[in-house]
Design a protein around this nucleic acid. Sequence first.
DNA 1: CCAGAGTGTCAAGAGATTGGACGGATCGCT
DNA 2: AGCGATCCGTCCAATCTCTTGACACTCTGG
Lengths: 198, 198
Amino acid sequence: MTRYRESVRSLLRDRLLDAAYERVTADGWSKLRMAHIATTAGVSRQTVYTEFGTRDAIGQALVMREVDRFLLGVQEQLDAHRPDPRAAVEAAVRFTLDTAADNPLVKSVLTSSRGAEDDLLAHLTTRSEPLLETATTMLDAYAAEAWPHIDADSRALAVETVVRLTVSHLVQPTLPPSTTAARLARVLSRVALLPDPS
Amino acid sequence: MTRYRESVRSLLRDRLLDAAYERVTADGWSKLRMAHIATTAGVSRQTVYTEFGTRDAIGQALVMREVDRFLLGVQEQLDAHRPDPRAAVEAAVRFTLDTAADNPLVKSVLTSSRGAEDDLLAHLTTRSEPLLETATTMLDAYAAEAWPHIDADSRALAVETVVRLTVSHLVQPTLPPSTTAARLARVLSRVALLPDPS
DNA sequence: CCAGAGTGTCAAGAGATTGGACGGATCGCT
DNA sequence: AGCGATCCGTCCAATCTCTTGACACTCTGG
């Protein structure tokens, strides 16, 4: 069984992130105070610093936790169309864009962004490396297992391409999610050198 | 929000009881060792003693946790027939007896009992006061709120009667659960002085 | 009767949490 | 520009919790 200490630790992290989430979605990132997080979670301010180090690290963790949750949903979408990479990716992208549009944290990040709120937004843009890393790692593994017939290099390139484009459309939508999803499926198809469906 | 310390505490208790549950349902109460619980939960033996004091208290807590879970189900059954005390009690009793028959802990307690295993069984028989206390307290509160038209004394008497009889039939079934449930509903009806349904 | 295994207790030490204090940065206000 | 308030981040001593190892005691099988 998992070591007890780890459970306690993750319980603490969850409580802290829950407290932060609540405040951020209600008032925005800039209104979030370290002291709020501490008292809401029923813990001292120092404990928050011991766990996360800086305010910024909390933003990072907040975003990453949400990313992890998204990836669970993405995996379900992929599984539902496992044999067909094109359909799988289309479903996964649509799911991501649709769900993100309703997600309180994402909404908070994107709407209140034009101000002093871009600290959080940065984790989706200029400092998105952790996000891209976990997303591509998970999807690389999935793709390698589900679609072994695709050439490895092309597959990796396609995965990274789709991930980056999805994030791009997430922070700056132009067309409706379903349209975008269909277009990204085509991009995937070509980058991965899939046989032409026509 | 709940104080952090309390959450950690209940996390610890849950882990310990989970560990104990696992062993008990697999090998029986007599094979359960304090050291097993500790290592399975990833904690020192001393911590188990600090939390529960004695091996016996763990048995007690194990039974009580299961009781609490049963009471949640019972409450659902009652709610489903809220306006009609007779039907509500019949459903609740049937649910209890049916579910208990499938419950790993209950099975373990009842089957392996004729031996050195009766320590656990005792919490349902000779030392069942805590069980009866929580069950009657919860049901008294429910009955008082749902059926205020029943005379308070009769209501309390009926609740206690049904609780004790249900436990009795649980540890020593004679008729099938549905039959027993119907009979207890009749007992309730008369003890609570409900108008004759005929 | 002894050896082994298990329960329950104790005390010292390691680790985590608290609360209070502090320096430095930022911001609104005058 | 100066001032006060607010908040971030760090430090530290006191306190609480968990761990570790030792020990007395009981029970059981050989």
